[in-house]
Every structure is written in C-alpha cells, then in structure tokens.
C-alpha cells in the first residue's frame, strides 16, 4: 500500500510564507502543529466540536481541524503566535490576563482568535450577542464569565 503522494502547498502563517510538501490528508491543524511546530493552536476534539483549533484564515475565524492544508493554497493564516506585535500583547491578550479569563489555558488561543474574528465581523452588539457568537469555543475550566468580561472590555474600548 503506497504512502499518499505529497504535494507542495504554499500559504503564509503570521506573515511568513511557507511552502510545505504535504499529503492531502493532513489537516491545517496538524500542518500547523506537527509540521510548522506552531503548537499554540490547540487540538481539543479534531471534529469541529470545541473551537480550540480556531485560527484566522484571510481574517476570518475558522476551525483548522475541519479543513485540509492543501485546500489553503495562497491563504493568509494567523495563529495565536501571530497576534501580539513583538513584545506588545494584543489588547485581548492583555484583557484575558487581567480578567483571569483562563485557568488551564488550553482553550485560550482558540478563544482569543475567535474573539478577534468576532470583533472583526462586527455582528455582536450586546453581551448576549457576544456570548452567542462566542459559543463555538468551549471552556471546560468554566472560565466563561471572565472570558466574556475580557472580550466586552476590549469591544467597548474599540467602539
């Protein structure tokens, strides 16, 4: 039985262009974690059920476990490693620290990337709407309240 033929695929991650030789069955999540060693993007279920693997793809939040890396030819991916500017944290990152919006920290990269995507979408006005549009990111530690507090603080300062 032959090993799947790898094919070249080029996309940028956090502004850096990468050309990888990948078999089609490699998900974007595994390409990031196992090939590019960008382990900030987490695997919580590998089935689209938890949001831990959320990254921004061409500025839109998507689940990296539910797409193949070969399908991302030419895309611009942003992961949690690319959110801060040098040593300056993104306001959401700082707000997460200030509000203690995490415990184990495993859902955190996905929550932050998702919140950035959500703010950019601009569809949530109220706290209730923020909760609804952030519901694709589970947190088993139950940091839900502080996560939404942190996002609301940043959202309000944006507006």
């Amino acid at each position: 039985m032959s090993y799947p033929a790898a094919r070249p695929v080029t996309f940028s991650v956090n502004g850096v262009s990468h050309t990888l030789s990948l078999a089609p069955w490699v998900t974007l999540l595994d390409a990031l974690r196992e090939r590019l060693r960008l382990t900030g993007t987490k695997k919580g279920c590998d089935h689209g059920q938890c949001g831990a693997c959320t990254v921004l793809c061409n500025d839109q939040r998507i689940l990296s476990c539910m797409t193949l890396a070969v399908m991302k030819q030419g895309a611009a991916i942003t992961t949690i490693e690319g959110i801060a500017t040098g040593d300056t944290l993104h306001p959401l990152q700082q707000a997460f620290i200030d509000h203690d919006a995490f415990q184990c920290g495993y859902c955190t990269p996905g929550q932050i990337c998702s919140a950035i995507g959500m703010l950019r979408e601009g569809k949530a006005r109220t706290r209730t709407e923020v909760k609804e549009l952030m519901s694709g990111n589970l947190c088993r530690c139950g940091a839900n309240k502080t996560i939404i507090d942190a996002i609301m603080e940043v959202k309000e300062s944006y507006e």
């Binding site: 993007t41 490693e81 959110i83 990152q93 620290i97 203690d100 995490f102 920290g105």
Partner: peptide
C-alpha cells in the same frame, strides 16, 4: 494575575503533545 499568563495567551505554553 497568573504568572504564566503571557505564555498561555501567546500560545507559548507547551502541553504534553
């Protein structure tokens, strides 16, 4: 605030895998 907070919000915290 948690001392390891920066590692957790930047994705630098490494877990077993």
């Amino acid at each position: 605030s948690r001392l390891e907070g920066i590692l957790k919000v930047t994705g630098a915290a490494r877990y077993a895998a």
